[in-house]
Simulated assay, not measured.
Amino acid sequence: MLFTKSSEVKSGLHIPLPQEKTSISQQSLLTSEEKVLLLSLARNTLETYTKTGTSQKLDHVTDKLPLRLKEKYGVFVTLKKSGELRGCIGHILPRTSLFQGVIENTINSSSNDRRFPPVDAKEVSDITIEISVLSPLEKIHDPVEFMVGKDGIIIRKGPASAVFLPQVAVEQGWGRAETLCHLCQKAGLSRDAWKEDGMEFYIFTADVFHEGDRT
């Protein structure tokens, strides 16, 4: 099922997750200036890539970026056109610097989300960019610990896995049980698979910001 009005995240065949429980520490929120820099970076990347098929050169600005943007975070980039989802791909776990993750996932969201055709340069002016910077993951043992409106959630059972960012359930108007049912469907499982033995649950929070925010 495709939820075109949400920041739905593309489900992969395998989501690498920590083997041990990881506590979510209080995530230091990005400053307004850092958010503006990341959104500008994503916008410039989108414009450059859709026109040239290549990413912009950053050699002249990398040294001037704030240190936090060079740290590793999980990050997703969501593209919306007229309020409708146009692409969303990201990294669950920290795998590269935050600024590089924004570049990579802007490109992937615009060209490699299989649910949509690649973004055309003519569309760029109609697209709004949203960035979600993820906290560390925490493994939970009871889905009742999943807090709608606060947490993003990942489920995994065998080779099947799927993820929703924290804003998805809110945008769709879902409660906890309904969110978990849709997440199971997204993973290719039965709607009630989240009630079965062997299901793994991971939660996380996200610092979500988008173009047009008054940060």
Rank of each mutant, 00 (worst) to 15 (best):
S7I: 01
T45L: 05
H14R: 15
Y73W: 11
D213Q: 06
N105P: 08
L79D: 07
R176F: 09
S6E: 13
N112T: 08
A169G: 08
G198E: 12
S7P: 03
H141I: 07
K35V: 06
M1R: 07
S6K: 05
N105V: 03
V168I: 09
V163Q: 02
R214G: 02
S7R: 13
E178T: 05
E211L: 05
A160Y: 12
F99K: 03
A169V: 01
I155E: 02
V168W: 04
I153V: 14
G158A: 04
Q56A: 13
M199D: 11
E123K: 10
A162D: 09
T50I: 08
N108C: 04
S55M: 02
S7L: 04
L183P: 03
E171K: 11
T22M: 12
V9C: 15
I92D: 01
D197M: 10
L13T: 11
L137G: 10
T128W: 00
T205D: 12
P159D: 11
E8V: 01
T52F: 06
V208K: 03
I89V: 14
W194S: 14
V124N: 07
T54A: 13
N108Y: 12
P117D: 10
K35L: 08
C184D: 09
V75L: 08
T54E: 12
M199T: 13
I203V: 15
V9D: 00
I107A: 07
E200H: 14
F3D: 07
L13W: 08
P18Q: 11
F99M: 03
V77G: 10
L137I: 01
E200P: 00
E71W: 08
A187D: 01
V9L: 12
L137W: 01
L79V: 03
G212F: 04
K57F: 10
E200D: 15
G212Q: 06
L65I: 09
A162L: 12
G173H: 05
N105G: 11
F201R: 05
Q100G: 02
R191M: 12
T96Q: 14
C88T: 02
A206K: 00
T78Q: 05
Q167H: 04
G74W: 09
R95C: 05
K35Q: 15
A169R: 02
N44E: 13
V77N: 06
L98A: 05
Q100H: 04
V61G: 06
K81M: 13
Q172M: 13
E47W: 00
L137N: 01
F201Q: 04
F99R: 07
E145D: 14
S110G: 15
Q26M: 10
K57W: 11
P94L: 00
A162H: 05
S161H: 10
G101E: 11
S110A: 15
I24M: 15
Q26D: 14
L39K: 02
S28T: 12
E171T: 03
F116V: 09
K5C: 04
G90Q: 04
R86W: 05
E145Q: 13
H141C: 09
E8I: 07
D63G: 15
V75S: 05
E20P: 01
W174P: 08
S109Q: 05
K72W: 08
N112Y: 14
G198I: 06
T78R: 00
S55D: 12
L180W: 07
S55E: 11
R214W: 06
L46W: 01
V75P: 01
K150W: 04
R68M: 03
R214Q: 14
H210R: 14
